[in-house]
C-alpha cells in the first residue's frame, strides 16, 4: 500500500496528470516525472511554487507546474 502522496503535474494550457511516486522508481528526479508524462526536459521548464527547478534534482515537491516551450520567434 502506497504511503507517499501522488505527484500532481500541471502542464499549463493542456492537462493535469497525477503520478504515483512509486511508479517513478527509486530516488526519482524532476526529469523522471517529466519522462512519465512523455516530455523532454529540453522542451519544458518545471516550476515548484512558481520558481524554476533544475530537472536533474531529487523530486521533493508533490505539485509541479510545467511550462511548455512555444515555437516561434
Amino acid at each position: 500500500m502506497s504511503t507517499d502522496p501522488p505527484i500532481t503535474v500541471d502542464i499549463k494550457g493542456e492537462e493535469v496528470q497525477e503520478l504515483e511516486r512509486e511508479a517513478l522508481g527509486p530516488d526519482p528526479t524532476y526529469a523522471d516525472a517529466l519522462a512519465a508524462v512523455d516530455l523532454s526536459p529540453h522542451e519544458v521548464s518545471v516550476l515548484v511554487d512558481g520558481r524554476p527547478v533544475p530537472e536533474d534534482q531529487p523530486l521533493e515537491a508533490t505539485e509541479l507546474t510545467v511550462l511548455r516551450l512555444i515555437k516561434g520567434g
Binding site: 526536459p41 529540453h42 522542451e43 521548464s45 524554476p52 511550462l67 516551450l69 512555444i70 515555437k71 516561434g72
Partner: peptide, 25 residues
C-alpha cells in the same frame, strides 16, 4: 542559447513575450 534557456530568461525577467503557438504551425 538553447531554446529552453531563452524561454527561461523571458520567464525570469517577466518580459512581455507572447506565448501562444501559431494555429497554422
Amino acid at each position: 542559447v538553447p531554446e529552453k534557456e531563452v524561454a527561461l530568461y523571458a520567464h525570469l525577467r517577466d518580459l512581455p513575450a507572447h506565448i501562444t503557438e501559431c494555429p497554422h504551425s
